[in-house]
Simulated assay, not measured.
Amino acid sequence: MDLRDRLLVQVSVRDVYDAVTLAGHPGSGLVFTGQAGHDAVRMARRSGYDGPLLADRRRYAGSARVRGTARLSADWIADQVEAGATAPLTDSGYIGKGDHESLHATLEQAVQWDSVIAVLPVHPRWVAEDRPVLLRTIADYGTPVALVVEDGPPYRPLPLPLLSAGVPALAALAHGAEWAAIGVREVLRHLYPEPHEIRGGWRRGGARSAFVPERLEFVPVERLSDGTCDCSTCRGRPLRRLASAEEIEVNTHNAKVLHRLHNRLLRSTHRERWWRELTA
């Protein structure tokens, strides 16, 4: 099962019953997030889902995140293989600013397994000032990787797969990444610095955002304009109506419009130029 050119949908394990609805179109796939991610993969396989499936344990996030020098779990790798994951992801810790020890520790451990993808959750400096070092180190080890980039200033896209991303996932695909994953909700589209301030407070149903293609961004449903959407979920109705919709309907809209944009990217003859023109 090939991950090439896939725009995956990253969900939490509690989304397992809605996940196939969100990733049922060609060119998609799923990333289940959390300690029970491999169990969600197994459930999706048993339900008949035959698209790409990954499991991201996400030990690198939150106030209790572990450092990248932490030991990777062979059991976590084995559980993913047994569950039917397309490729196992390492349960990596966080790689902080200038933390070369963590970068090397993660990659040194990952190379011991065949077909394992080394997850590299990095401080934003690694994709800006330390970019040449990061790329050279990855090339030296030669193992497949997937980046998770902590929130920070905008950076030039890298030709490497992305997890827990928003719009930068499309930019990565346009610049040569094999695959990328966009989270269904804000917490899965970001790697927040720790400690971080929670903004906006709690809202019933969680903080829901709808993707607006004309703006190339996710907009909180309470701030949507009067524009309409012609995706098969919205059917020409105003986007503003999503403010009172269930989360699954908002996420289905997001999946449909992102899939359409992804198809346009795949059909372009020069992806980088297409992306530059789209974002100009």
Rank of each mutant, 00 (worst) to 15 (best):
residue 257 V to A: 04
residue 60 Y to R: 08
residue 18 D to R: 07
residue 190 H to R: 15
residue 100 H to T: 10
residue 207 A to C: 00
residue 123 H to V: 13
residue 73 S to V: 12
residue 241 R to W: 07
residue 133 V to K: 13
residue 162 L to Q: 00
residue 263 N to F: 01
residue 131 R to P: 10
residue 6 R to P: 09
residue 248 I to V: 14
residue 238 P to H: 03
residue 116 V to S: 06
residue 256 K to Q: 14
residue 103 L to M: 04
residue 278 L to H: 09
residue 50 D to E: 14
residue 210 A to L: 10
residue 279 T to H: 08
residue 32 F to W: 07
residue 173 L to F: 01
residue 187 V to G: 12
residue 248 I to D: 06
residue 151 D to F: 09
residue 121 P to H: 13
residue 36 A to C: 09
residue 56 D to G: 03
residue 247 E to S: 12
residue 106 T to L: 02
residue 41 V to R: 04
residue 213 P to A: 01
residue 53 L to T: 00
residue 196 H to V: 09
residue 149 V to N: 09
residue 276 R to S: 15
residue 116 V to C: 07
residue 16 V to H: 11
residue 267 R to I: 08
residue 240 R to T: 03
residue 41 V to D: 01
residue 159 P to S: 04
residue 184 V to N: 01
residue 207 A to Q: 09
residue 7 L to P: 08
residue 241 R to N: 04
residue 230 D to K: 13
residue 228 T to Y: 14
residue 182 I to N: 04
residue 166 G to Q: 01
residue 8 L to G: 10
residue 37 G to A: 12
residue 91 D to T: 08
residue 58 R to L: 06
residue 130 D to E: 14
residue 136 R to S: 15
residue 266 L to G: 14
residue 82 E to I: 11
residue 241 R to E: 13
residue 273 R to H: 10
residue 195 P to D: 02
residue 16 V to C: 03
residue 63 S to Y: 12
residue 43 M to K: 04
residue 111 V to T: 14
residue 127 V to L: 15
residue 12 S to P: 00
residue 60 Y to V: 07
residue 272 E to C: 07
residue 201 G to T: 05
residue 40 A to G: 02
residue 186 E to Y: 01
residue 262 H to W: 15
residue 263 N to P: 00
residue 65 R to N: 06
residue 144 P to F: 01
residue 44 A to S: 10
residue 235 R to Y: 05
residue 133 V to S: 12
residue 86 T to H: 08
residue 147 L to M: 11
residue 27 G to E: 07
residue 56 D to A: 09
residue 259 H to G: 15
residue 129 E to S: 15
residue 151 D to Y: 05
residue 185 R to I: 11
residue 12 S to L: 08
residue 123 H to F: 14
residue 15 D to T: 03
residue 148 V to A: 05
residue 151 D to Q: 15
residue 38 H to A: 13
residue 240 R to G: 06
residue 15 D to L: 03
residue 184 V to M: 09
residue 147 L to F: 10
residue 236 G to C: 05
residue 122 V to Y: 10
residue 105 A to R: 04
residue 71 R to C: 07
residue 136 R to Y: 13
residue 70 A to R: 08
residue 280 A to M: 12
residue 219 V to R: 02
residue 62 G to N: 10
residue 244 S to P: 00
residue 17 Y to P: 00
residue 151 D to E: 15
residue 98 G to N: 03
residue 120 L to T: 12
residue 153 P to L: 11
residue 21 T to C: 06
residue 19 A to Y: 08
residue 107 L to G: 04
residue 143 T to D: 01
residue 61 A to I: 06
residue 54 L to I: 03
residue 242 L to Q: 01
residue 50 D to Q: 13
residue 136 R to F: 07
residue 204 R to Q: 05
residue 83 A to W: 05
residue 58 R to F: 01
residue 132 P to H: 09
residue 128 A to V: 14
residue 21 T to V: 12
residue 95 I to G: 02
residue 47 S to G: 11
residue 160 L to T: 01
residue 251 N to V: 02
residue 243 A to E: 12
residue 57 R to F: 09
residue 275 W to F: 11
residue 111 V to P: 03
residue 104 H to E: 10
residue 117 I to G: 08
residue 205 G to L: 05
residue 203 R to G: 02
residue 85 A to E: 02
residue 26 P to F: 05
residue 170 L to C: 02
residue 199 R to P: 00
residue 47 S to L: 07
residue 209 S to G: 00
residue 136 R to M: 09
